[in-house]
Simulated assay, not measured.
Amino acid sequence: MGVTWTLRAVTLPGLGPEVLARTVQGRLDAVVAEMSTWEPFSHISAFNRAPAGAWLDLPEGFARVMACALEVAALGQGAFDPTLGRLTDLWGFGPAGPVQAPPPSALIEEALASAGWRRLEFDARQGRLRQPGGLALDLSGIAKGFGIDLAARALLRLGVRHFLLEVGGELRGEGLKPDGLPWWVALERLEGEAAGHTPVVLALCGQSVATSGDYRRYMIHKGQRLAHTLDPRTGTPSERGVACVNVLHGEAMVADAWCTLLSVLGAEAGLELCAAHGVAARFLVHTKKGLEERLSPAFQALLDD
């Protein structure tokens, strides 16, 4: 995944750091083996190479991620799309490595024509997916969150009830710290936030928080920063003025996917969708006066408690 992970846990007899490390790393390695486009022998790479009309059986985890990805794609009417693999490569954010300039519009249009989540046929009952021809999946906007959930469930099965797991900046907390207090997590402050702005601190107990922002991965072209979050409707980096989105949810996979979706939708449309579905989200939006914070009703309710 190209990221590090950390775990803080209240251990049990016979469950030392080495056992917990193997447990977490093993689950993350499994996600990479199934859903990393950087791995030529992964299941997702096999699907992307498959001929038109081929059905591929998916591992259980892969199938769960696809089901969630397609559900979020439908909710966002295509603002989240797991089929942007070719566009990701064109913009230099995929395994092929960075590029020096935006791709020509003709190549963007060609990649868009081969993409589209509605082109997929997903047999949820049988756990299989049909390659329509020329379509390249990219699950980077959701798979890391699933890896966190997978590792967290493995820790719980071991009997570890109190822990804070972080993978690439996304976190999941369970139980309490040894002192009886929650796992408190402060959301990252960005350059441009008002100096007197009160930091947002969340208590993670059976909850996950994911973050997406234009300051993490981007390219600079002619003095302009182009974020790695691509708008599936245009094939270009999102231009909705969103500096950062934080989403709090019981499943890290869902929080991860919604972060990507909301970065593309922008604050106005994104907050409407969050309100309709009870999603707790926080936006930091670029304005002429700096970064402005906007909260969904569910997120505001957490701060009011």
Results as ranks from 00 to 15, higher is better:
residue 1 M to F: 02
residue 3 V to H: 01
residue 4 T to P: 00
residue 4 T to A: 02
residue 6 T to K: 08
residue 8 R to E: 13
residue 8 R to K: 07
residue 9 A to F: 08
residue 11 T to H: 04
residue 13 P to F: 05
residue 16 G to R: 11
residue 19 V to I: 14
residue 21 A to F: 01
residue 22 R to T: 10
residue 25 Q to K: 12
residue 28 L to P: 11
residue 28 L to Q: 09
residue 29 D to R: 14
residue 34 E to N: 05
residue 34 E to P: 07
residue 36 S to V: 08
residue 37 T to V: 11
residue 39 E to P: 00
residue 42 S to V: 09
residue 43 H to G: 06
residue 46 A to E: 14
residue 49 R to T: 09
residue 56 L to G: 01
residue 56 L to C: 09
residue 56 L to K: 02
residue 57 D to M: 03
residue 62 F to W: 14
residue 63 A to F: 09
residue 66 M to N: 06
residue 69 A to T: 03
residue 69 A to G: 08
residue 71 E to H: 04
residue 71 E to T: 02
residue 73 A to N: 09
residue 75 L to W: 11
residue 78 G to H: 04
residue 79 A to Y: 05
residue 79 A to T: 04
residue 80 F to D: 03
residue 84 L to D: 03
residue 84 L to T: 09
residue 86 R to C: 02
residue 89 D to I: 07
residue 90 L to Y: 05
residue 90 L to Q: 05
residue 91 W to E: 01
residue 93 F to T: 05
residue 95 P to Q: 06
residue 100 Q to A: 15
residue 101 A to G: 13
residue 101 A to I: 07
residue 102 P to Q: 10
residue 104 P to H: 03
residue 112 L to S: 08
residue 117 W to G: 01
residue 117 W to K: 01
residue 119 R to F: 03
residue 121 E to H: 14
residue 122 F to I: 08
residue 122 F to D: 05
residue 129 L to H: 04
residue 135 L to E: 02
residue 136 A to F: 09
residue 137 L to V: 09
residue 139 L to N: 02
residue 147 G to R: 01
residue 151 A to W: 07
residue 156 L to G: 07
residue 157 R to F: 01
residue 162 H to S: 14
residue 164 L to D: 01
residue 167 V to K: 00
residue 168 G to C: 03
residue 175 G to V: 01
residue 178 P to F: 03
residue 178 P to Y: 04
residue 180 G to A: 04
residue 180 G to Y: 05
residue 181 L to R: 15
residue 183 W to I: 11
residue 183 W to Q: 08
residue 184 W to C: 04
residue 187 L to A: 08
residue 189 R to T: 13
residue 189 R to L: 05
residue 194 A to F: 00
residue 195 A to H: 00
residue 195 A to P: 06
residue 199 P to H: 01
residue 202 L to F: 05
residue 204 L to D: 03
residue 204 L to R: 04
residue 206 G to C: 12
residue 208 S to F: 14
residue 209 V to A: 12
residue 211 T to F: 11
residue 215 Y to I: 09
residue 216 R to D: 11
residue 220 I to L: 15
residue 223 G to A: 06
residue 225 R to G: 08
residue 226 L to K: 04
residue 229 T to I: 15
residue 229 T to F: 13
residue 230 L to G: 08
residue 231 D to W: 05
residue 232 P to N: 13
residue 233 R to S: 13
residue 235 G to I: 13
residue 237 P to R: 07
residue 237 P to W: 09
residue 242 V to Y: 08
residue 244 C to N: 13
residue 245 V to W: 07
residue 246 N to E: 13
residue 247 V to Y: 11
residue 248 L to K: 12
residue 248 L to G: 11
residue 252 A to E: 08
residue 256 D to R: 09
residue 257 A to H: 10
residue 259 C to G: 15
residue 260 T to Y: 07
residue 266 G to L: 12
residue 267 A to H: 08
residue 270 G to V: 05
residue 273 L to E: 00
residue 276 A to M: 03
residue 282 R to L: 15
residue 282 R to V: 15
residue 286 H to I: 13
residue 286 H to A: 14
residue 287 T to M: 11
residue 293 E to C: 09
residue 295 L to G: 02
residue 299 F to I: 04
residue 304 D to I: 14
residue 304 D to W: 13
residue 304 D to Q: 15
residue 305 D to C: 14
